[in-house]
């Protein structure tokens, strides 16, 4: 909808929302586990992620494939709330995103 945005860098004050996802979009690391949540509506992709993240070793990356627009915002927000790391979100050819999360604990 919007083509131009001011303040995407969040130079002052609090870190601007979305900045993490925007600046890191495109980076895609090798994933220890891929969760296919395509076609599933939120909160299902996040429930799948929460269920399965402990299956990968500490410091490894889980990749969630999701096409519900809510997942694009909610998986990074989940990482923040749960102290895991959002690595990045990359668009995928079939539509949607590969959203990568590093297990922190």
């Amino acid at each position: 909808m919007w083509r131009k945005r001011s303040g995407a860098g969040g130079e002052t004050g609090e870190p601007r929302a979305e900045a993490v996802a925007e600046t890191q979009a495109g980076t895609r690391e090798p994933a220890a586990l891929t969760i296919d949540a395509l076609g599933r509506k939120c909160p299902i992709p996040i429930i799948m992620l929460a269920d399965q993240i402990n299956q990968v070793p500490m410091g490894a990356v889980v990749e969630v494939l999701a096409d519900d627009p809510a997942a694009y915002t909610d998986i990074p927000a989940w990482c923040r709330l749960k102290s895991h790391a959002h690595v990045g979100s990359a668009e995928i050819p079939q539509g949607g995103w590969a959203i990568q999360v590093r297990r922190n604990y």
Partner: peptide, 30 residues
């Protein structure tokens, strides 16, 4: 704003912090 864009105008959207507050300095620059 979308209507304005359809008519050829430009729209500059100023982002917000995690709490939903517009950054006054970024707004001033815009």
């Amino acid at each position: 704003a979308e209507e304005h864009e359809r008519g050829g105008g430009t729209v500059d959207v100023v982002g917000v912090s995690r709490t939903g507050r517009v950054d006054a300095e970024v707004f001033a620059r815009a």
